[in-house]
Design a protein around this nucleic acid. Structure first.
Length: 626
DNA sequence: GTAGGGTTAG
């Protein structure tokens, strides 16, 4: 870079004599800046040229297209057309078509296509391949296919374009057909096919292909690791990452680390996440936007919001996602003030919030009980920022109002929604009815929910509970019967805990862990000490059909309790226990964690579906409001 | 020169 700047300075202070080909120098500078990932410098060098030739134009356009600065590339292309000379050639069009494809700029793309035909450049294989790709990216597979079928010659890239084109249009069958009958395959064909299967949700088939591959480069590994992470197979994703390191034939790059960090974030795998942080530092990898965001999010989701902020501060470039990570992360930790101040700082820096940023702000207000603030931001969202609230935002605000007991307002909001309410929205109101004992409204809400989702277990449990508490035992029994008839399936509760960089997974009532016996005896010992300390199991969440003692047992099998018990037997005394759960923590577990933290004198950090709970000395950071 | 892999929320 220093050399580049020196040459640049010399160009300005000491203009070369006319015998020197300035265009040639510029082309060299531009391609050097492409290699150093500095496309804006390329544009600067270009702007110094008195009479750019076609080589200069082409290297600029290529650099911009390569670095995804597509709008800028199209702007320069239009300048080129306006200047009328030099005339664009096949090199020019490959870059321009790529920019059109990236932006889904259909009018520009069709105009360029027409120019290509007019100048007879479609005889060129590269141009033809780019055109096929562009029409796939425009969402027109039929047009793309017609162009492909009309090609006089095709190479492996043409076939690969079809595979990735069909799979990005969601037509995985067509993509696989192409893969199966193409004349020769490259590593790109395999990667594209693996990614395609993974995108369609079929990780098993993707894995089958991956295992069959004759050889693999970093992109193949990335496709498979990302494919697992995107389909919530986080443990598999981490396992593959380990295999990749062991195999030693492909070195992880920033794309690999982004996927693995995302898996760490989901599982709460702090040790591995920190190891990756060290890896980045050891190799002095640049903390790019993607990598910085993924690292910051990993720390936020693993309970280290302070470290997440430090990573955020270290990043050279930040976008909406970076800010949203900090805002949502603060919200998860119950730090509403930080979330709100982060939001205002972001606005000051001219970054436009998106719908996810508002999810963070609204949930921060919900977790802190800041009802009026939440309503204020909810209104600003559409009036000031032009973002239409999605059903998730309504869910958040209904939750906010319901918890505060403003049930009328919550119900009115649902009835005035622009989008049809879903089970989550009604469920939030149902939660309020439960807390404030509004039986009449609760019954009404349950009917709405069952209309949308006849198998909604929470509603049957709620109704059965309400009926039995007011003595309508027959109705309660009928509810439970209907629940059994519909074979209401709950999402299984699952918790993860990382010990010595290995993530252990526990399901509700799980006995599959090798140390299962020790874990259960730990739970037995704990519940005895908890009872002595005054803990009373809360059994209202469990089905009424089993007797009291069984109910207590069933409660003790919740996955978070298993994970915490395992943490207690396998970590050093006094060490913090960190557990992540896929669902919301139930009342009883929340109460139990408070007691356990006191009895064993340990800090327990539990992340549930919506936020963090830091248990210490018998108290929780959420102040029992979640 | 053209084709393959990536971060937030739900």
């Amino acid at each position: 870079m220093r050399q580049l700047l020196q040459v640049h300075a010399r160009l300005i202070t000491d203009p070369p004599p006319p015998t020197v080909d300035t265009n040639l120098v510029a082309v060299k500078l531009i391609s050097a800046s492409a290699a150093r990932a500095n496309p804006r410098y390329a544009a600067l060098v270009f702007s110094l040229l008195p009479a750019p030739n076609l080589f200069a134009w082409n290297s600029l356009l290529r650099t911009l297209a390569l670095h995804h600065l597509w709008p800028l590339a199209l702007r320069y292309f239009n300048l080129l057309l306006a200047a009328r000379r030099p005339l664009p050639d096949e090199f020019t069009f490959t870059s321009v078509l790529k920019a059109c494809a990236g932006l889904a700029a259909v009018p520009d793309g069709e105009m360029s296509h027409a120019l290509v035909l007019k100048r007879g450049l479609d005889a060129n294989l590269f141009v033809r391949n780019s055109l096929v790709d562009m029409y796939f990216k425009f969402g027109c597979p039929a047009v793309a296919r017609r162009l492909f079928d009309g090609m006089p010659v095709r190479d492996v890239v043409s076939w690969n374009t079809l595979i990735s084109g069909y799979s990005s249009c969601g037509d995985i069958t067509a993509a696989r057909e192409v893969f199966d009958r193409m004349p020769e395959r490259s590593m790109v064909s395999w990667s594209a096919m693996i990614a395609g299967h993974a995108r369609s949700g079929d990780v098993a088939t993707a894995r089958e292909l991956f295992d069959q591959m004759p050889e693999r480069n970093v992109v193949c590994w990335n496709a498979m690791i990302a494919g697992c992470a995107q389909n919530e197979k986080f443990l598999d994703s981490i396992e593959l990452f380990r295999k990749m390191l062991q195999s030693g034939c492909a070195l992880p790059n920033d794309v690999t680390l982004v996927s693995v960090l995302s898996a760490c974030a989901h599982l709460g795998a702090l040790d591995l996440g920190m190891w990756i942080d060290g890896f980045i530092k050891r190799r002095s990898m640049e903390l790019s936007l993607f990598l910085g965001n993924a690292l910051s999010d990993m720390y936020a989701k693993c309970g280290c919001i302070g470290e997440a902020r430090r990573v955020f501060e270290r990043m050279k470039e930040r976008d909406v996602i970076s800010w949203s990570i900090i805002i949502c992360g603060s919200a998860m930790h119950g730090h509403a003030e930080e979330a709100i101040s982060g939001f205002h700082e972001m606005l000051q820096r001219g970054i436009k919030p998106n719908d996810i940023t508002f999810m963070g702000i609204l949930s921060a207000c919900t977790h802190a009980g800041l009802v009026d603030d939440g309503l204020k931001y909810f209104n600003r969202m559409s009036y000031e920022f032009g973002i239409d609230p999605k059903v998730e935002h309504y869910g958040c605000v209904v939750d906010l109002l319901s918890r505060a007991g403003r049930l009328d307002e919550a119900e009115n909001l649902i009835n005035s929604m622009q989008v049809p309410p879903n089970v989550i929205v009604w469920g939030a109101l149902l939660g309020g009815c439960r807390i404030y004992g509004d039986i009449c409204r609760g019954e009404r809400v349950v009917h709405h929910i069952l209309e949308l989702d006849p198998g909604h277990s929470g509603s049957y449990v709620y109704l059965a509970h309400v009926y039995s508490s007011i003595g309508r035992l027959e109705d309660a029994a009928r509810c439970r019967l209907r629940m059994r008839e519909k074979q209401v399936a709950k999402m299984p509760g699952c918790s993860w805990i990382e010990v010595d960089s290995t993530v252990h997974e526990f399901f509700m009532g799980d006995r599959s862990h090798p140390q299962s016996e020790k874990i259960y005896s730990m739970i037995g010992a704990l519940s005895l000490r908890m009872k002595l300390a005054g803990y009373v199991p809360d059994t209202t969440v469990v089905s009424q059909s089993i007797d009291e003692e069984e109910k207590e047992d069933a409660l003790s099998m919740h996955s978070e309790k298993l994970a915490v018990a395992f943490g207690l037997i396998s970590t050093k005394e006094g060490a913090t226990i960190r557990v992540v759960k896929n669902l919301r923590v139930c009342n009883d577990c929340h109460e139990a964690m408070k007691f356990i933290s006191k009895i064993v004198a340990r800090e327990i950090v539990l992340r549930d579906r919506s936020r963090f709970h830091h248990f210490s000395e018998g108290k929780c950071s959420c102040k029992d409001y979640w």
